[in-house]
Amino acid sequence: MLNLGILISGRGSNMESILKAIKRKKIPINPAIIISNKPDAKGLKIAQKMGIKTEVIESKNFKGSRLDYDKKIISTLEKHGVTPKNGLICLAGFMRIISPEFVKKYKNRIINIHPALLPAFPGLDAQKQAIDNGAKYSGCTVHFVDSGVDTGPIILQLVVKVKNNDTEKTLSKRILAKEHKAYPEAVRLFAENRIKIVGRKTIIS
């Protein structure tokens, strides 16, 4: 069975949705380790209550390069069996850009979720971008991580209609509800070996 590592920085609501789906036997994957770069991340307590191992690799006062930091993450992942051959890594509100070397080592084994319909509105404040640009629809995208910003092959997307009176907060809330459905589904598809990458596209069997 595949081993799952989840990287978080905060409340970990997407992490929680994935872990709950695993507990309900919806996803055939072993939740091996939750890693946070912040010791006060609320998601750590949620994971611990669910019986999942957690580790903190603090980034705030880390002495060294981004790659040096990522090597500590990789070492921890591998210690818990999340390897390039037998692992999947989910970024769930992990507020760091991972190094190209990390991406290359775990090629097509790192996935992320973004609160917009990529390739529209990549990067920060995606919900605000959607409203400011008058988008009629937004949503969320689960995608593989590559060396760009929100540019990897798209696994799946769920759509949210943008209302005329939406604020960044109200739109974010509705998108987050969709994220909690999309992310576990993408992890399930990966765990069942149903995703094939062909160029820039993914084919779901």
Rank of each mutant, 00 (worst) to 15 (best):
residue 188 R to Y: 09
residue 193 N to G: 10
residue 197 I to C: 10
residue 165 N to R: 08
residue 72 K to G: 11
residue 138 S to R: 12
residue 156 L to S: 01
residue 24 R to D: 09
residue 187 V to K: 11
residue 75 S to Y: 11
residue 188 R to H: 12
residue 1 M to Y: 10
residue 59 S to P: 00
residue 42 K to W: 02
residue 193 N to I: 02
residue 67 L to C: 09
residue 178 K to G: 01
residue 6 I to T: 02
residue 183 Y to R: 10
residue 190 F to W: 10
residue 134 G to N: 12
residue 139 G to C: 12
residue 121 F to K: 00
residue 138 S to L: 13
residue 54 T to R: 15
residue 61 N to A: 12
residue 69 Y to D: 12
residue 85 K to L: 04
residue 28 P to Q: 14
residue 177 A to E: 14
residue 92 A to S: 11
residue 198 V to A: 15
residue 124 L to V: 05
residue 17 S to K: 15
residue 136 K to R: 13
residue 199 G to V: 03
residue 12 G to S: 07
residue 141 T to S: 09
residue 88 L to G: 06
residue 128 K to L: 14
residue 11 R to L: 07
residue 8 I to V: 03
residue 115 P to Q: 08
residue 15 M to E: 04
residue 127 Q to V: 10
residue 41 A to L: 09
residue 177 A to N: 11
residue 9 S to P: 08
residue 67 L to P: 05
residue 60 K to G: 05
residue 35 I to K: 03
residue 107 K to E: 05
residue 148 G to L: 09
residue 78 E to T: 05
residue 31 P to W: 11
residue 159 V to L: 14
residue 58 E to Y: 08
residue 144 F to M: 02
residue 115 P to N: 10
residue 93 G to Y: 12
residue 118 L to Y: 04
residue 116 A to Y: 02
residue 20 K to S: 14
residue 47 A to G: 11
residue 169 K to R: 09
residue 184 P to I: 05
residue 131 I to S: 10
residue 50 M to R: 10
residue 41 A to I: 04
residue 15 M to D: 04
residue 13 S to K: 13
residue 196 K to I: 01
residue 146 D to C: 05
residue 24 R to P: 00
residue 128 K to T: 06
residue 39 P to A: 15
residue 121 F to E: 00
residue 144 F to P: 00
residue 62 F to A: 07
residue 159 V to G: 03
residue 147 S to A: 15
residue 12 G to V: 08
residue 103 V to N: 07
